[in-house]
Design a binder for these strands. Structure first.
Lengths: 342, 342
DNA sequence: AGGCCTTCTGTAATCGATTACGGAATCGAT
DNA sequence: ATCGATTCCGTAATCGATTACAGAAGGCCT
C-alpha cells in the first residue's frame, strides 16, 4: 500500500546511467548491451512501473478506447462489447464502457468529456441519430466510429447492419413456408433500427405479394418483453395472422408467449421469426428462428476501423455493411429443414 | 480534428490573469467574482478542456475504476457491470472493463499493469482463488474489492454471494413440493461457485432427508448449455429423479431440454430449479424457477465499497454477504402458488 | 497614521515520463 | 596519426496541469 513508487530517475541512479538511457532501453530504442542489461536489472530490482500519466502527457496517447452504447446490459451491445474488448486488448488498448441510457444529452456530454484526452478514440452506437449528435461528431477532436448509419456528408467511419436485408430474408423464408398474412411486431419507429425495419417490412410485403393489411402491424413502446406482450395482445385482438416477425428476439418471444396463451400452436398455426439471434433464441420452446444482424462482427469491425484510423488518421473514410444471417429453428418450420442461411 | 487544444496558460492570457487563478476558478477554490467571471468566460470562449494526463500526473487520480471478470458476456457479470458502471458514473468515475478469460496469468498481468496508475481501484471477480492470486492481491498498491470469497487473513474488502443459502432455499422448496429424489447438475467443482454449491447440496440433502444416492449428482464440464446437455444425458442414462437443481440457469435449461426429449413432463414428472435467475429464466417453457444470487446488488455493493475506500483508505475491512432470492415460476410448481421468497 | 489580519493573486516548483541536441568515444580508411 | 562517420550517452527542455509560498491590497482597530 505504499505510494512512493520508483521513478525513472531512481532507476537511472540505481543502474548508474542517465534517465534518457533508461527510457530508451525501456522503449526498445538502440542501446549498448551493457546499458540495456544494467537498466533491465535495475528496473526489475526496484519493481519499476512507468507512470501512465507522465507517459501519456508526453506522447499524447492513453491506449484507451471508449465504447458508448445505450445499455451495457442489452445482449446485442454485450456481444459488440465483447468483440471490441477482445480486439482492443490484442492491439494493446484498454476499453472504457459507458451507458448513455439512450439520452442524447448524456451522449453529448460524453463526446465532450472525451476531449480531455483519456481515450484515443470512440466507438459509438447511437439509438437515435439527431442533428445535435451529428454536429458534435463533426466537431470531435478524436476519431469516432459509429455503429449504425450516418448521412454520407458526415465523414465518419461507420459500420452498419443490414436490417433491410434481414427483414427480407425473414419474409422470404416465411413466404417459402406458405405464410401470406405476416404480422410485424416492431419496436418504436423513432429509433434507428425501428424505422429501418419498418420501411423494409413495407417494401418486402409488397415485393412478395403478402397481405398488405395495415392491421397486421403493431408497434411496441420499447424493445422489451413487457411491451411486446402488450403489442401482441393488441394485434390478436384485431386479427390472427399466419406468421409474425418480431422487431427483435424479445418482441418475438413475448409474441410466442401470448400466442400460446391464446391456444395458437407455433409453428403450425402461427410461425414466428425474431431478429438479432441472441442467446435467448436457443432456449425457448419451440426454439426461435431468428435473423442475426452480426453484432459481434459489427463490434469487431468497428474496433478495427478505429484502431486502423488511429494508426493512419488520413486514410479514406470507411463504410462497412455487415450481412445478416438467419438461423432457422423450430418456430418457423412447417416441414422444411433447419439450418443457416445468408 | 486539430490538435492544438488551449492550455491553462492560454486561458490565463486570454482572461488577463495567472495560471494559478485559472486553476483555482476551475476547481472551485476561492476567487474574486471578477476573476471568476473572466476565467469562465475565457475558458468558454476558447473551448478549454483540461488535459486529463497533466491533471492526473499531479493529483495522482485517474477517476477510473477497473472491473475484471472472466467473461464480459456472461449474464451474471453483465448485471454486475451494469450496476458498477452506474454507481461509478454517479460518483464521477469511469469504468474500464477487461475479460480475463478466467486465466490466472492474465489476471495477474492485469493486477500488475494497474500499477501504472491508470485506474484508482479494481473490482475483481475471480473464477478460482489461487495462492498466486492472493499474493498479488496482498501486494497491490491500490484498493481492490473482490466479488467472491477470500480467506479472512487477506485484508481485502469483499462481497460474496450466499451460494449455500441459495441451494438450501431451492432444496427446501423442492422438498415442500414433495420431491425426494433431487438430482444436481452442477458445473466444474474446481471453480468457486461449483465447489460451494456442491458442498451446500450435500449438506442440505442430508438435513432434509432427501435421497443421498450418489448417482443423482453429475458435473458438467462447464457452465454452458452444451455441457449441460451432456451431463443431463449422463444423468438420465443412470436414473430418473423427481427433481433437478441446475448449477446455473444454463445447466437447468439444458436439463429441461433433455428431459423433454425423453418425454418427461416438467414439472409433473420432474421439477426443475436453476440458479442465478437470469433473463433466460423468464422465456423458457415452462418458465424456470430460479434462485438469484443478487448479481446486481453484489456489483453495486462492490462499487460502493471501493469508492468508500478510495475516500478513506484507512477504514476497516468490510465483508458483505448478499442474500439469495428465489423466484418461483412454472418449472417447479406442483399445485402451489408462484412468487418470490427470501 | 500605523499595525495587524484577511483575502486575492502571481511566480515558480513540481508531478514523471520522452526526446532534441550536442558531446564523447570508437572504428576504419587513408 | 588524422579525419570523418557511427554509435552511445547525458543534459536539459518539454508536456499541462496543481499548489506552496510570498507579496499586494484592502479593512479594521487603536
Amino acid at each position: 500500500m505504499t505510494t512512493d513508487r520508483p521513478t525513472v530517475a531512481r532507476v537511472a541512479r540505481h543502474a548508474g546511467v542517465s534517465v534518457a538511457s533508461v527510457s530508451r532501453v525501456l522503449n526498445g530504442l538502440p542501446a549498448s548491451p551493457e546499458t540495456r542489461e544494467a537498466v533491465e536489472r535495475a528496473a526489475a530490482e526496484l519493481g519499476y512501473r512507468p507512470n501512465a500519466f507522465a507517459r501519456g502527457l508526453k506522447v499524447r496517447r492513453s491506449q484507451q478506447l471508449a465504447l458508448a452504447v445505450a445499455d451495457v446490459g442489452n445482449p446485442v451491445y454485450v456481444e459488440m462489447m465483447r468483440a471490441i474488448e477482445d480486439e482492443a486488448r490484442i492491439r494493446g488498448y484498454r476499453l472504457l464502457v459507458s451507458s448513455t441510457g439512450g439520452r442524447i444529452d448524456d451522449t453529448l456530454a460524453l463526446l465532450d468529456s472525451l476531449g480531455h484526452g483519456y481515450a484515443d478514440g470512440l466507438v459509438l452506437s447511437p439509438v437515435r441519430v439527431e442533428p445535435a449528435l451529428l454536429d458534435a461528431l463533426r466537431g470531435a477532436t478524436y476519431p469516432v466510429v459509429v455503429i449504425g448509419t450516418v448521412p454520407t456528408d458526415v465523414r465518419i467511419d461507420n459500420v452498419r447492419a443490414n436490417s433491410a436485408g434481414g427483414v427480407r430474408m425473414a419474409l422470404e423464408h416465411l413466404h417459402d413456408n406458405g405464410c401470406r398474412r405476416v404480422a410485424f411486431v416492431n419496436g418504436p419507429a423513432d429509433t434507428v433500427p425501428g424505422s429501418a425495419r419498418r420501411r423494409a417490412f413495407e417494401r418486402n410485403v409488397r415485393a412478395l405479394g403478402l397481405d398488405p393489411d395495415e392491421s397486421l402491424r403493431v408497434e411496441a413502446g420499447d424493445f422489451t418483453l413487457a411491451e411486446g406482450r402488450k403489442a401482441a395482445e393488441a394485434l390478436l385482438a384485431r386479427t390472427v395472422p399466419d406468421a409474425v416477425l418480431g422487431g427483435n428476439d424479445l418482441l418475438a418471444i413475448a409474441t410466442m408467449q401470448v400466442l400460446s396463451e391464446h391456444d395458437l400452436r407455433i409453428p403450425e398455426d402461427v410461425a414466428v421469426v425474431g431478429m438479432d439471434d441472441t442467446e435467448l433464441a436457443g432456449v425457448t420452446t419451440p426454439t426461435l428462428t431468428s435473423v442475426g444482424l452480426g453484432a459481434l462482427e459489427r463490434g469487431r469491425t468497428a474496433a478495427r476501423l478505429l484502431l486502423d484510423r488511429l494508426e493512419d488518421p488520413e486514410r479514406e473514410v470507411q463504410r462497412v455493411t455487415v450481412q445478416p444471417r438467419m438461423t432457422v429453428r423450430r418456430s418457423s418450420l412447417r416441414g422444411a429443414t433447419a439450418g443457416e442461411a445468408r
